[in-house]
Amino acid sequence: MISFKKCLPTLSLLAFLVIWQGLAVYLDSNTLPTPEAVAKVFWQACVSGQLPFHLGVTLLRLVISFAIAMLLGCAIGIVLGRNKKLDAFFDNWLVIFLNVPALVTIILCYVWFGLIESAAILAVVINKLPNVIVMIREGTRMLDQDLLDMARCYRFSKRKTLVHVIWPQLHPFVMGATRSGLALIWKIILVVELLGRSNGMGYQLHLFFQLFDVAGILAYTIAFVAVIQLIELLILKPLDKKALRWRK
């Protein structure tokens, strides 16, 4: 029974492939290629270097915009969480920025700054930033006052208080912002690339759309999902494990 339970994820994946194959064969249409055809396209795109190049470009944009949004968002979130007056002043701004559609920000950035790399990065950052700020602000509001008093009483420096008292309490909120942020930025970056860049996954998908190349779209999607899974497995999970090692 245990081994059957362990096999379940693999079995479900196999079942998915079988259904896909069955449907593709049954429909026999260009709009739904078989898994095998997609795998072939995937392999060719890898060997030709096309897929790694465009994926790399998108990943680079993701890393830069994600880092800027997280750093700025954490700093602003902590300040707003600790300062009631500033929070009251900027609260409306946050609500506005949270609700501006991503597409509007992207178009405005391109119109105001031109179809350049920094405009693309800025558009992604502006879309993600309010989200990080809100999450970190909520975390900061929930900080344990008893521990902060202890730190004050034992004359912890500001840096010591931030690193040893505040940051560990914010960890779940930062991880939440990271996970939801990665998912959000992936989606926005593709639109940014589709609208104003001449490389990256978004640009490629746009090209496939014009050529009606569904196999290409699916091959790139698979690469995409694989990268997200790798980030979760190789970076986020180990980080979680290290930060929460003190738990029973």
């Binding site: 008093d149 202890m150 040893h164 560990p168 003190w246």
Partner: peptide, 11 residues
């Protein structure tokens, strides 16, 4: 200061 609850950093 020894507080009523120990106020140790759990992490």
């Amino acid at each position: 200061y020894v507080f009523q609850n120990p106020r140790l950093l759990p992490w």
